[in-house]
């Protein structure tokens, strides 16, 4: 048995360099904190921060520029994939990601996400799905599972009135321009690790010019859901995954993209 002295202690869990050391505006138990952290870790591990331009969307996610030490442009609601397209096309050396919520990506921004994917834009999309409009007070989102109560579906989502939750990542995976599509979760440590690996693969796809990549991350909104943080995690792990199964939906390095590098 070896003994360790204080001098030999090694700190194995530190704040990623790209994660700014400050308090956040997020509610207690919000999933954004975890996701920001894994994104920052991944950017650090791949040494991407100096060449990164992030695209912040509208919603709780907008303050990306306060928490990640990368260049960030703020997009109008839903338009982040178009903004990212503009950045990436004129800066082919940049690493470009969007960070979008489910209202932003799967409702108001459906045209932009579908066509960025269809063009095979060399961007990575981090899609945070908590099934609710958190910033505006917890309204029904396109991704809200059937039966879930929100401030604008007070008796629970009824398909006859509000239609069905939209599995948009599966839809995007059908497109030839998409190199990588996966769905992870922050509901437990194991899935946080797997989600980070998904981010890594998505980022690699962009760097290799393989095409569009997206990682959907099931997240929580304890305040919007009316649950405690722990109950929220359990809800994701037990219930939300029934509507949104976890796993890699597509991983095809040679996507047919419109703007892949020559050669």
């Amino acid at each position: 048995m070896t003994t360790s002295t204080p001098d030999s202690r090694r700190r194995i869990y530190t704040r990623p360099q790209t994660l700014v050391d400050r308090s956040t505006h997020f509610c207690p138990g919000c999933g954004h904190g975890i996701i920001h952290r894994v994104v920052a870790e991944q950017l650090d591990e791949m040494h991407l921060t100096p060449r990164t331009v992030g695209v912040a969307s509208v919603g709780c996610s907008v303050f990306l520029y306060d928490y990640l030490a990368v260049d960030v442009v703020e997009s109008p609601h839903g338009r982040a994939p178009a903004v990212a397209t503009g950045v990436r096309r004129v800066r082919p050396d940049a690493f470009v990601f969007t960070y979008q919520g489910d209202g932003d990506l799967a409702a108001i921004g459906t045209a932009e996400i579908v066509h960025a994917a269809a063009r095979g834009e060399q961007i990575s999309v981090i899609f945070v799905n908590n099934g609710i409009y958190g910033m505006t007070g917890g309204q029904l989102a396109p991704t809200t599972p059937l039966g879930e109560r929100t401030s604008s579906s007070p008796t629970g989502r009824d398909a006859r009135q509000a239609g069905y939750p939209i599995p948009i990542t599966e839809m995007l995976a059908l497109l030839p321009g998409v190199a990588y599509a996966a769905r992870g979760s922050i509901a437990d440590p194991a899935w946080i690790g797997k989600t980070k690996a998904m981010l890594k693969r998505a980022f690699e796809a962009q760097l290799a010019g393989e095409g569009f990549s997206i990682v959907e991350i099931l997240s929580t909104c304890p305040v919007g859901w009316g649950l405690t943080p722990v109950e929220s995690m359990e809800h994701v792990a037990r219930d939300v995954v029934q509507t949104y199964p976890l796993g890699v939906l597509k991983d095809r390095p040679q996507a047919r993209t419109a703007n892949a590098p020559e050669g």
Binding site: V53, A82, V83, G86, V87, R88, R89, V90, E112, H115
Partner: peptide, 13 residues
């Protein structure tokens, strides 16, 4: 919408 937001992104660089 797409066109001008692409412009926004490109202009931001």
């Amino acid at each position: 919408l797409g066109a001008i937001n692409m412009a926004l992104g490109a202009a931001s660089t």
